[in-house]
Amino acid sequence: MRRKSMTRYSFFICLAAGLACTSQPQEEMAPKAAEKAAEVTAKKPVFTIYSGRSATLVEPLLQEWAAAEGVELKLRFNKNTEALANRLVTEGQRSEADLFFAQTAGYLTTLGDRGQLRTLPDGILNQVPETARGPKKHWVATSGRLRVLVYSPERVKAEDLPKRLEDLSQPQYKGRIGWAPGNASLQAHVSALQSLWGAEKTKTWLAAMKAQNPARYPKNSPQVKAVDLGEIDMGWVNHYYLHKIKAKNPALKAANHSFQAGDAGNVMMLAGVGIPKSSDQVEKAEKLIAFLLSQKGQEYFTQKAYEYPVVKGVSLHPDVKMPEGIADNSQAALNDVAASLKMLRELGID
């Protein structure tokens, strides 16, 4: 078994294993020893994935690949991709991770720069556009999530919707907006704004937004429901929450709105994967990445998760629309969450 089966970390649940003495004759022990050896031989190889994506979303797809490949998955989920990335760095060459699946691909750029990820082959990288792969070939995107404005078509006319994200701070929207400043997606978007607008303009806009008396929510989905219930007219969310909730409640009275082409409101957040240098199962990891980028893998993300594909020729879900143009931000720009949190705290909206 490889090194990771011999290493124990304090944060794992460990089993104390020992050999018990017995008075049984040697000839009675031999068959049992043979049985144990056979069991060990029959065990599937273990492939370990560190995932910042939720188990509900990606585990069915990962298990489908594992069954076809004949491996047993060891999955470590943590929605806080930054914490998971820090863990990989701390473990270094001792890490058991064979694949790192990031909710926000920018963290993969950081891991690559810190020497934690292998360079991916061109055969994988060339399946996606340059904007969906690492600048130094350390990662490739698997799907995208778009930041949008969810709104009530009953209470907000299409012509009255803001054309730019910054317009949300205008007087006509006061008391009508919801947001989730404690949510990672909003914090990542604030990081993107600092990259696109600069820190000063971002801070000024956030202060103006605070003055709008926005309703505060813990995350994205409650905002979609709040729009339907009439609590707010608009919410600042990820696009797919509307579609997931509407699939369960077709009568939902809410719709998504994207801003004008290239606006800072149209931030696309990519999820992606990279292969840790500590892995000795590189071939299997590359096979899994190829599966995630295959027609089957991409259609899983688009049709079941309502996300955007990264491979050309894969259709969007019929209910999901592509904006006229997305914001021109790097994925690495989404990483500077510490600066965003500091700014939010200084403004009293953390």
Rank of each mutant, 00 (worst) to 15 (best):
K32Q: 11
L88P: 04
G265M: 03
L196E: 08
Q260D: 15
M6Q: 13
R87G: 15
A68M: 08
F11S: 12
I49H: 11
H257V: 03
K253N: 12
P214T: 02
K284T: 14
T119V: 14
G106N: 08
P121C: 05
L165W: 09
G198I: 02
K321Q: 15
T110Y: 10
Q26K: 13
M234L: 12
K287S: 15
K277A: 07
D328E: 15
T104F: 15
A208L: 05
Y151F: 14
F101K: 03
A254L: 04
K248V: 00
A192E: 06
E69C: 09
M209T: 00
T90I: 08
Q187D: 03
T41M: 11
K203T: 12
V227S: 01
W205H: 05
Q295H: 12
R216Q: 07
A215M: 07
M322D: 11
R114N: 13
V237A: 03
E96Q: 12
M269H: 05
V282N: 05
K284A: 14
L242I: 02
S95V: 04
E96P: 02
V58N: 12
R76C: 11
P60F: 06
D263E: 07
R216N: 07
V320W: 10
L111V: 04
D167P: 03
M29E: 11
L57S: 13
K174Q: 15
P318S: 11
A97M: 09
L242D: 05
W197Q: 07
D328I: 00
L316C: 09
V310E: 05
I289A: 06
P129H: 05
V310Q: 05
N256V: 08
H239L: 01
F301M: 10
P45A: 12
E28H: 08
K157T: 11
